[in-house]
Design a protein around this nucleic acid. Structure first.
Lengths: 217, 217
DNA sequence: GTCTATACACTGATAGAC
DNA sequence: GTCTATCAGTGTATAGAC
């Protein structure tokens, strides 16, 4: 009896503790960078002894790697709205909304990702070369199709994609600068809505979506 | 005699060594982050003993602060093209070109700045609150004037500015990702030109600059 | 102004009692 | 699975000879 229950119990404890540690690690890594973060500080934030971290994650690097992989998955899931669209106004509009929502809800994750890429992705280099390259090439083909169908101007989809990534993630990665320029206040609900509306309008109009489709942003 | 020459000589030595150290520090800080960078590594890159660094810059933080301040000055100088313009096509076009050129020539500086802001600007917090706030508010007024003169659509200049910052700096801060998506190659001259053209076209058309003015980008 | 040697604090990681 | 005690290595910074 106990032999069938105990393992489940133990697995649940492990799952919960890993979640607590990963949340604390994401926060600390985003605030201090990889080199500036210490296992001691992550342990304090998680409310656990430092040795426990090494029990669940053998090394600092393995813990960090898990944090980055989790963030990568959030990006991928959010990108699914891109696919079920019939054209740029719908597809890119929904994609921008989804990415802005992530920037608002998970700025720490976005910062860890940005920091990792800025330092030439020493830990998740393989992810960039496989998953990201494949995903990007697929979306570029979709946008190329929209160009050929006359749904948008003949611009280079690659630079459009970079612009969307850069702008949406800027609201997470540079949130401190944005708050400083907003009278030291976080953006309100209305300001986030305005940000989304302005971004979508400029980009969609900029690639040739007719004004009639812009009114319902 | 010697009393008037010696001091000049010494000052020149100091100036040269500080320049060597600052260049090495910018490179190391951008690649490893503040916490990940070590005085030993900076000394190795500069080709000097570690103790010499502490002679010219008493602490690691003082050296870092100087690096960030230097970058800030580069931004400010580059922004001057914004001012002598008569409208958005000319002013924003030149500003985007200038910022893209910085991203191309000084990616390390842009990365140090990004990293500093991402970590809530612990070192140059005062700069954000004074110089950056003032500069930003001035440019917003200029753009607001363009809106009222009917030279561009009634969009919020603040979000337009963030979009320009985000997109142009993305080509520096995320250059590793961009290179990975470019068959592991740095962007060529032609690709940089194409990037500038695409960005300027999308943004300027997006804010309502007539097609007739876009053709000469 | 330069450089070697070193002080002192803190880091990631582990051993071993519970 | 938890936690205290501790080790070996490395970091910033400095003292002092040259």
């Amino acid at each position: 009896m106990t032999s069938t229950i105990r393992p489940l119990k133990k697995k649940k404890v492990r799952q919960e503790n890993e979640k607590i540690i990963l949340d604390a690690a994401e926060k600390v890594f985003s605030e201090a960078g990889y080199g500036g973060a210490t296992m001691q500080l992550i342990a304090d934030v998680a409310g656990l002894p430092k040795a426990n971290l090494h029990y669940y994650f053998p090394t600092k690097e393995s813990l960090y790697r898990q944090v980055v992989q989790n963030i990568f998955n959030v990006w991928l899931v959010a990108a699914e709205v891109f696919d079920s669209a019939t054209g740029p106004a719908e597809g890119l509009g929904a994609y921008i909304d989804a990415k802005m929502e992530i920037s608002r809800r998970h700025p720490a994750g976005s910062k860890v990702w940005a920091s990792e890429v800025m330092h030439r992705a020493p830990i998740i280099h393989d992810y960039l070369e496989t998953a990201l390259v494949d995903w990007t090439n697929d979306r570029i083909k979709v946008m190329q199709g929209w160009v050929e169908a006359g749904l948008m101007d003949p611009i280079d989809p690659r630079h459009l994609l970079y612009m969307i990534w850069a702008t949406t993630q800027h609201y997470a990665d540079f949130n401190h600068q944005i708050e400083t320029l907003n009278h030291a206040q976080p953006l309100s609900d209305k300001q986030w809505q305005a940000a989304k509306r302005n971004i979508k309008r400029i980009i969609l109009k900029g690639i040739g979506v007719p004004e009639s489709e812009l009114s319902r942003l």
